[in-house]
Design a protein around this nucleic acid. Structure first.
Lengths: 373, 373
DNA sequence: TTGTATGCGTTATCAC
DNA sequence: GTGATAACGCATACAA
């Protein structure tokens, strides 16, 4: 670190001692006054005023390191995300941020870029910074079970958002995927669709399987047939936008094999966007020739063309609930609280927009097209 | 903070002293060895090994607060953003993160949610945490000049990304908006368009005016007429997705007044999405009946339907350049470096996709539509 | 080759 | 009402 000509280290600022010297009072008094500690009741009003004035004039700012060292509290909550460019994470993050605003805590956000190595490095750093709680935002990707269960070893209250660990004491907050899958298929079915194509999520992903369970449950209830040719599966590469590309190519393939389906249920919104693109490339319009339903309700789903019908995850709420749970655990002093290991399953919500419609409105479409010409 | 039954504060961990006690060496030796300080050359290999073994066994982690206090360095770079849900910010953030990975610095990210009050609160906190540099990511919104110029007062090297201050010593990194505006109109003009509608950015926004200057320069060069009825302006509310809504309603209005334009140049991608929606509502298809050109190239522009032609800002590069500049300034010891106050203007790049096309291919469209029917 | 002493900026406890 | 002192965890100059 460079030393400046005036002999001051460029890191140094005005400290309590400076304020003390300048005001003529002792550092302890300054501290007491500026922090409005209980004892400050006994400090003369004039003194207080003077001290505050001097502090302001010198632009004094308490040093977080000195303070945290002394108080043995960091006042930070670590927030680990795996891909900040994933719009899914983004809304959860907002929920977290907003909930933290009203507290004494500052979020310490790091982005592991879907890389295990980064995850571990950042985790270590967060622990060195003595975060008092940890929120892990798992978009539907990876970092395997072992890595996550590592989290339990550290004594920091931790909660997982957007994903569920099949076992282990780690609490989690996520949407009810099973119910979401059920709702999704129910929606298409209620619109009259019987020939439905499916792009399900990666099999190895627990949450994806749960969602699929919901689909299967509804299919069983109404006796829907799901021919193999119309059921495909994402592989789940961790590159961003990959599910768009996969959705597009899987849909293309299905269309070439047997284009007879009238609706398509995608694993998530990005996949749905890809499917819409493939359908259009194939000369099919959405929803007239084929309905498409997504999952998540990312911010752009409503802007898309056609606007995307989807199953909404209450992402912002998931974030704020996670914060609530962490604060709770912190207050309990890091003890294994009764609610620890609990799983909060939030209800999904079907959002109908333009990309899904009743089956066979072909005549109407023809009419409109001719009219336009 | 709760005290545990074993009398330990739940904040406490194993410290250097613990490792010292356990290994039989003194704290200083431990510190020297674990940090691989130069002097550690003189420490016996066996000693080193032993110390490292014990440290690992006790799961020792250096305390960032103790260390930073002593070394008077925080090893953090503050990153202030104004809306994390803005995809524009997202890519810049990624650029910042990636560039920081290879350094000793940790990004400390905060989101001011477009609120001045939050901005100030977070700024104060970042300063308390003694960030060694500050990167401000300004999506095209606000926090007025005074607020930003406040930044100069603090002795922290600061660089602004994505926006430019008209004056003041604050360095900035952004796209060449003037050139971008020029390129945009040039593109539409080269496709044969002469009747062009414009949705320009908020007038009070400096960067927006620069972009508009570029548009005007090209228009002047080729003698393009820009009737007032086809030039509208965003107001620039700070709500997210607002430019979609505004783009949509402004376009609707123009269409109702005089729908004779064959192309539309939007201030940014979100506005363009809104314009496309309005056109579609009006029964116009893009690009057949009207070309639409965006600005930014947000991640979803390519996924959109039709995929959006746009002027790309090199957002990730902007982030990494900002990091480079900050690191530079830090190395110079916070001195007013020669490059300070400099403005890096990065070249924009035209990305042609589906939403723009040559004028009057009407016959082709008719043919296709009839064929499909 | 290793240990001792000191101080970073803060706050809590106690003494005056 | 206010001030002196110690301690938080660490790294370093210096002593041994």
């Amino acid at each position: 670190m460079a030393i400046r000509k005036d002999g001051q280290n460029s890191f140094s600022r005005t400290t309590l001692a400076d304020v003390a010297r300048e005001s003529g009072f002792s550092p302890s008094t300054i501290s007491i006054v500026l922090n409005e500690a209980p004892i400050s009741r006994y400090v003369a009003a004039k003194t207080k005023e003077h001290i505050r004035e001097v502090a302001k004039r010198l632009d004094y700012r308490p040093d977080a390191f000195g303070r945290s060292l002394r108080k043995r509290r960091s006042h930070t909550i670590g927030v680990m995300i795996f891909d900040i460019s994933d719009p899914f994470c983004t809304l959860i993050l907002q929920g977290i941020e907003k909930s933290l605003h009203s507290t004494e805590f500052l979020p310490f956000i790091v982005d592991a870029h879907n890389q295990r190595e980064q995850f571990e490095r950042y985790l270590a750093m967060l622990l060195e910074y003595r975060v008092e709680g940890l929120i892990v935002v798992a978009n539907w990707l990876f970092i395997d079970i072992e890595t996550l269960s590592e989290l339990e070893r550290h004594r920091v209250p931790t909660v997982l958002v957007g994903s569920e660990m099949r076992s282990g004491p780690l609490g989690s907050v996520l949407v009810n995927n099973e119910q979401g899958g059920y709702l999704a298929l129910q929606h298409l079915h209620s619109l009259g669709h019987r020939k439905i194509a499916f792009i399900r999520g990666p099999r190895q992903l627990w949450d994806s399987s749960r969602r699929w369970d919901g689909v299967l449950r509804f299919a069983a209830e109404v006796g829907l047939k799901m021919p193999k040719k119309w059921v495909v599966e994402l592989t789940g590469s961790s590159e961003s936008n990959s599910s768009f590309d996969e959705g597009r190519s899987l849909t293309s393939t299905m269309l070439q094999n047997d284009a007879g389906f009238t609706a398509l249920l995608a694993f998530d919104d990005l996949t749905a966007f890809g499917a819409v693109r493939a359908l259009r490339d194939f000369g099919r319009s959405v929803p007239e020739d084929c309905s498409v339903l997504g999952f998540d309700d990312v911010p752009h789903a409503a802007l898309f063309n056609p606007s995307l019908s989807t199953v909404r995850q209450p992402m912002e709420r998931m974030g704020s609930i996670a914060v609530g749970r962490i604060l709770n655990e912190i207050q309990q002093g890091g003890e294994v609280a009764p609610g620890k290991g609990r799983v909060d399953l939030l209800p999904p919500e079907l959002v109908q927009r333009e990309s899904t419609g009743a089956i066979h409105p072909t005549s109407k479409i023809l009419a409109r097209k001719i009219g336009k010409i």
